[in-house]
Design a protein around this nucleic acid. Structure first.
Length: 720
RNA sequence: GCCGGGGUGGCGGAACUGGCAGACGCAGCGGACUUAAAAUCCGCCGGCCGCAAGGCCUUGUGGGUUCGAUCCCCACCCCCGGCACCA
């Protein structure tokens, strides 16, 4: 029984781990066998795994590897667990960099994009991921943007798209408008240029209609970080809209409304403030105050948003000469304008309650306006205030409400206001409608036509796609380059055939990525964006992964799209992605964001060349928790490489074995094996790749120890 | 200011959410093999005291709960990310 044998499972005892040969061989084999081609008609349960698709900037960088390798590992894990896994990849290929490159180098954005895609696809194949390339989508290709335009028409048909003139964010460098979500600290999200405002006629999507539903994350397994960011971005505030009487000779309006979260302080109103841009300012300002008011308005317009949004600057304002009447107590209070009041939030007007709001307090102090407390806060001694009082105590100076405790105050005042017709309880949101027009050419043309007879006419679905011309002048002028392309601009009205003009703005590229996960399930369908049956089978995405930089842009827009699609009868799901995992960001070795200008970019190709793709992938996963990210320090990769060599040796090298069932050493070996399986399974399930690799390294170390001990190992346990 | 995450060896990080802190790896030190080096293998590797056995200290700071705290509670400091004059 104890006959000792030597197992030698490799071709030769001197076989060494040669990543390049192995990877080349197996990647070619996988591709030839089409093993990652995901069938639609497969009896196994489906698993839709998705990683955010890249913009084809030209080169795959470490960040792409860091995002894709672990998600690939997880997708493979699900596949090995018996799921029919869909793990597609594509390119989010419309957008400004292509246009800027075109301007700089004089080549068409389409050519630049195509070249980059080809290169990056090849780089991604080197990764050895299980992407199903037969489903690849490219958002700038006509057979894709045809359907992006189709979505626009559906939203338009269902009153979820509309056109209006509004002051919108403008990036002077990129020469285009931006969505609120693309303005960061008063600068352009893309190029950091301070933004300005312009009054323009633009297309919007009614995302605000879904504000409340978008706040419901109860069916989602998403990181709290992301749901919190979305919650803050939507910014729901409960309060009331209150009417104030307006009695200015020659002005038609008889009232002006404010939104407030503290209607219970309405008896403490001692002044009233409008945003400088508020339309009433022009009408109600008295002749004596006009020069000062106009100067202030002009200055507010001129100031950059960064200056204006600075919270620590002193409050300024100007009296308009007009008064409004507080309907609750009949008092006349002066109307001021001040730039701390935002035209875009609530009604663009604020009731000034210096006794209970610190900003109002500072403003009243500065301009000598009276301060009337309406809650007797327990900490207040009744003397003159040095700051606004916090919530608490019973109401005072408030007519019929005197004595009401603070916790009952808000509902009581709202009820009273509704009975008397002074106002009503309401909810206000920070979220604005999504501005989707862009004055650039490398995007999907907005499929509408302007006709002198029929007005705004949607392009019929049968005429889609509205193709981008391949010979447009792409220099930015502040207007879409398409405007100067006669062949594109001039068309005929779909209704009456009259001469008409095309819309020359293009769609925000975030619209392309708002539905791309639905296209992967049926990427070659030229009848519909996707078939209903396939949607029923594949949607929603089971596991999505990507960076948090898209928390309030892409991830909010795609949720809106899904809900709108559901209400339009296109899909039967409420949410696009059930689970989300946000990976961290890989930084340069200096701890700074990798960028060419800093010179801290580590090229993945060099690492792959030197260590092999598997080693590089494993090292990225071994660095630390995936959601953490951090500086990339290439000095540690040698450890992973050593481990792979050891693992190769452990599996392929010679070992002395014998039949030793039940021996203590056998029990120990089997315990190690199964404990490792358990740890790896659990870690993989929870995206804990770093500890998964530690477990595998420990196991390898144990195997090597058994092998080097000279004692024979149980043949069956060793094989296992 | 508000919200979220974090602070553990020289470094990246681990510790099954109350049970031997520092797994795994990098770097470092010592050794084996080698004419030599690389590669590989073996050993050591938080700090202080000690020849040693061993002892004391140690998870940002200070307190608390507990037989027992990196983990729970209170207060504070620092770092990262987001939001921010939102009425």
């Amino acid at each position: 029984m104890n006959e000792t044998t030597t197992m030698n499972r490799s071709a030769g005892a001197t076989s060494r781990y040669d990543p390049r040969a192995i990877e080349r061989k197996w990647q070619a084999r996988w591709e030839a066998d089409g093993i990652y081609h995901t069938p639609d008609d497969d009896p196994r349960p489906k698993w839709y795994a998705l990683t955010m698709f890249p913009y084809p900037s030209g080169d795959l960088h470490i960040g792409h590897w860091f995002a894709m390798s672990p998600s690939d590992a997880h997708a493979r894990f699900m596949r090995m667990n018996g799921y029919n896994v869909l793990f597609p990849m594509g390119f989010d290929s419309f957008g400004l960099p292509a246009e800027n490159a075109a301007i700089k180098r004089g080549i068409h954005p389409a050519d630049w994009t195509a070249r980059n895609i080809e290169h990056m696809r090849a780089q991604m194949k080197m990764m050895g991921a299980m992407f199903d390339w037969s489903r690849e989508i490219i958002t700038s290709s006509p057979d894709y943007y045809k359907w992006t335009q189709w979505w626009f028409l559906q939203l338009l048909k269902h009153d979820l798209a509309y056109r209006k003139s509004q002051a919108v964010w403008w990036c002077p460098k990129d020469q285009t408008v931006l969505a609120n979500e693309q303005v960061v600290d008063g600068t352009c999200e893309r190029c950091d240029t301070p933004v300005t405002k312009r009054d323009l006629e633009q297309w919007f999507f009614r995302i605000t209609r879904y504000a409340d539903e978008l706040l419901d994350f109860s069916r989602l397994e998403w990181p709290e970080q992301v749901t919190t960011m979305q919650r803050n971005w939507i910014g729901r505030s409960e309060g009331a809209e209150l009417r104030f009487g307006l009695d200015v000779p020659g002005v038609d309006e008889r009232e002006v409304r404010v939104f407030t979260t503290r209607p219970d302080t309405v008896y403490g109103v001692t002044f009233f403030v409008l945003a400088p841009e508020h339309p009433l300012v022009e009408k109600i300002t008295t002749p004596e105050q006009r020069p000062e008011v106009e100067a202030y308005v002009a200055q507010a317009r001129r100031e950059s948003e960064i200056e204006r949004m600075s919270t620590d600057r002193e409050k300024t304002g100007v009296f308009t000469g007009a008064y409004v009447i507080n309907l609750f107590n009949g008092e006349r209070v002066p109307v001021w304008i001040a730039d701390y009041v935002l035209a875009t939030y609530g009604t663009g007007a604020v009731m000034g309650v210096p006794g209970h709001d610190q900003r109002d307090f500072e403003f009243a102090r500065k301009y000598g306006l009276p301060v009337v407390p309406v809650f007797a806060h327990p900490d207040w001694d009744g003397g003159e205030l040095t700051a606004a009082l916090p919530h608490g105590g019973r109401m005072i100076n408030s007519g019929p409400f005197d004595g009401t405790p603070d916790e009952e105050a808000i509902p009581a005042v709202i009820k009273y206001a509704e009975e008397k017709g002074y106002g009503r309880g309401t909810v206000s949101y920070r979220l604005r409608d999504w501005l989707i027009s862009r004055q650039r050419m490398w995007g999907a043309p907005i499929p509408v036509v302007y006709c002198d007879t029929h007005g705004v006419v949607p392009v019929p679905e049968s005429d889609l796609p509205v193709l981008l011309p391949d010979d447009a002048e792409f220099r930015p002028t502040g207007e879409s380059p398409l405007k100067y392309h006669e062949g594109f601009l001039n068309t005929t009205c779909p209704i009456g055939g009259e001469p008409a003009r095309r819309e020359t703005d293009t769609l925000d590229t975030f619209m392309c990525s708002s539905w791309y996960q639905m296209r992967y399930i049926d990427p070659h369908n030229d009848e519909r964006p996707f078939s209903r049956d396939k949607a029923r089978k594949w949607l929603p995405v089971d596991q999505y992964t990507g960076g948090t930089e898209h928390a309030v842009m892409h991830l909010l827009y795609t949720r809106f799209f899904t809900k709108a699609a559901r209400d339009m009868g296109i899909v039967e799901i409420d949410e696009p992605m059930t689970r989300l995992f946000s990976q961290g960001q890989i930084l340069g070795p200096d701890g700074q964001r990798m960028s060419k200008s800093r010179g801290n970019v580590v090229a993945p190709d060099g690492e792959v060349e030197k260590w092999g793709a598997d080693c590089f992938r494993a090292y990225l996963m071994f660095l630390g928790p995936w959601d953490q990210g951090g500086p990339y320090d290439s000095s540690g990769i040698v450890g992973v490489s050593r481990w792979l060599h050891r693992a190769w040796n452990a599996v392929t090298g010679d070992v002395t074995t014998a039949d030793l069932p039940g021996a203590p050493s056998t029990r120990e070996l089997r315990r190690w094996t199964h404990r490792t399986i358990q740890r790896v399974t659990s870690d993989l399930r929870h995206f804990r790749f770093n500890t998964m690799l530690s477990a595998l390294m420990e196991f390898t170390n144990h195997l090597m120890k058994v092998r080097e001990s000279g004692e024979p190992a149980d043949a069956a346990a060793w094989r296992e």
